[in-house]
Design a binder for these strands. Structure first.
Lengths: 203, 203, 203, 203
DNA sequence: GATGAATGAGCTTTCATTCAT
DNA sequence: GATGAATGAAAGCTCATTCAT
């Protein structure tokens, strides 16, 4: 092993997270050992604790980071640049594009996705449960507020509460993620389904 | 402690398996402790080892038992009583009914289903991987042979190999199971999808 | 396994001891399991406890039984039938014959011998230590009393106490037993050595 | 508890080995508990596992280390500095001296010797058997090669193969070790026997 | 008289985590 | 700032032994 370089804290932290993502995704939260992660990151065990106060916290940070990063990707593309959305059809398209963009990024985030599904088995740890819920909540809130805005601006009319629709959208995302991880994802099918759903959500 | 009742081996084994199913399904394979299972079954740890030589074996036995029990349920209903199946439509119906019967039993086997999905995270243990694969394989073989028979009897014509179709059927089952566990299962939707698929499988 | 016959207690006990001798001699006191012994004897574990209150007791009984049996063999041959021993030379011959008879029986008692040497590693259990010592003591006492009788009858003259000589005889027996178990026993050599020693003991 | 001193790994390992030698030699491999050894070494159980991956490995390392240490002592004294050995008499003397040096060191290695004899009861563990055999083999090879050299240089003439003689030498060593441990070792006697044997080996 | 059922007690081993240097 | 040394706590598993039937 190469002599461990002195890295600036932020960088080192990122290296550790990257290593942890790999190690966790290769087995699971319980089987993965701190020392495996440390070895993969090229540091010693206590270094992990310098940045993350416990294994659980490290796991949670991964969940949070992944969630916020994908959310970021999302916002940056700004599918919902309202100036451009002037009619229902545009609105529908924006929803479609945003979701499809998520589906397209699944390959890139395959490992993180696996970790998300592991997390489901760990919901008896309340902290983990919270992070998991929050992460879904963020997405839901985003869609909820967008739908709200669209409705307020009279661009669209909703038949259900914005919240209910938002959570159905999240459900669809999770569902497709599962299909993806299990090897059942077929882009064409999803596209069609997505189209149908959008018509349902925004009638 | 309540005075430990003496049970004949077969009964005790069943009690332990039941307890293990509960304990495993409430958290996961790694988190569940032998002593939790023992306590739930109202026995001491060593009793577990009288019946199952290791925790992993116990887990595997649950997987196997569940698999063979649901398969049994299946065979007993004999959807494929060939004397009665004389035309393609009957054949299609038999497939539909058999699958729908499986979907209907998911609620009954919710815990076992959860354990099956936990097992996916444990496939780095080769024994567990094998049991998992075998269990799917059994179902696949069943459908394969049925399709084969139907084709040989000229009741149906297949556009793909019986094997490929069989595995697509399994995929559909797994997919619906996932939806179910995640709370996304809607009987109506599944019925429609099932209908479509059957038309695909048996054109 | 054949249905366990109802055996008279004494016979059953002997069967168990025989099984225990085999099982112990094949590994060692700690590694040998009660259930192995029971299986070998064709009985269930609790049966062992019917006859021997603990594993240690069973081990001790083997030591005792072996000791008394070989001692018995010894006495029966009556090398020291005093009427026939009228001179030093006869006395020496009796000693020689008695020891040589022991050496000749080592093959027959190989397993028991192994157990004796195992017992040495277990002397931290005081009971076992006692049995071991007693067993040597019995032999020693025998020789001591014979030497005493010989001296009192003026057949032989001793240069050391009868006790000291007796224990040296025991030492020689143990030594030869060790050689035997380790595969270094050569009858010819032992015969010569024995002859020398006898001259020493009875000058 | 006394505050646990921090020791560099090498030192700590030596402390543990020393403790293990004592604890093993005081009872036996099965009776000695890891926690006994840890306590004796003034550490907690897991420290043992930092250095030795299992109890069996620890035991084996002791056997190996002892074997290589005594062999080292041996080689350092260089009884077989060939320049000085020019005639049969010198050669014989070298053999005698080397063996006698070993016998003289038995007191120093009494505990290790006891452990070696324990190991015999544990030969059903194949790893232990191997270590034991290798350890004897090393000594045998040493003597074999020396005898070979002597014969090739025409300093001595052998009546048997160098290998056979080498193993007879090992047998003699083991035998004397046994006598020593059982309290029957008498330097004088051994010297005489040794002298005889050497005449046999190198006639 | 014999056994199947059950357990107490204990051992090896693992791992997240801390702390002195 | 980084690490090697050390441990607390617990888990899986084994085995001699007991007891109800």
């Amino acid at each position: 092993m190469l002599k461990p370089k002195r890295l600036p804290a932020e960088k080192r932290k990122r290296v550790i997270i990257r290593a942890a993502i790999e190690v966790f995704s290769e087995s699971n939260y319980r089987v993965a050992k701190i020392s495996d992660i440390a070895a993969r990151a090229g540091v010693t065990d206590p270094m992990i604790y310098k940045f993350f106060s416990s294994k659980s916290i490290l796991f949670q940070e991964i969940l949070k980071k992944t969630s916020s990063k994908t959310l970021q990707d999302f916002l940056e593309q700004d599918f919902f640049y309202m100036e451009k959305i002037t009619c229902k059809e545009h609105f529908r398209l924006a929803i479609e594009k945003s979701l499809f963009s998520y589906f397209s990024s699944m390959e890139k985030y395959r490992k993180e996705l696996k970790i998300y599904f592991q997390a489901i088995s760990e919901v008896d740890e309340p902290d983990i449960e919270k992070v998991l819920k929050d992460s879904y909540q963020n997405y839901a809130s985003l869609y909820e507020s967008i739908l709200q805005k669209g409705a307020e601006a009279n661009i669209i009319q909703l038949e259900m509460s914005a919240k209910a629709i938002a959570w159905d959208i999240i459900g669809f995302m999770i569902h497709q993620s599962t299909l993806f991880l299990m090897g059942f994802y077929v882009e064409e099918d999803t596209k069609k389904l997505l189209n149908q759903r959008v018509s349902m959500w925004i009638p």
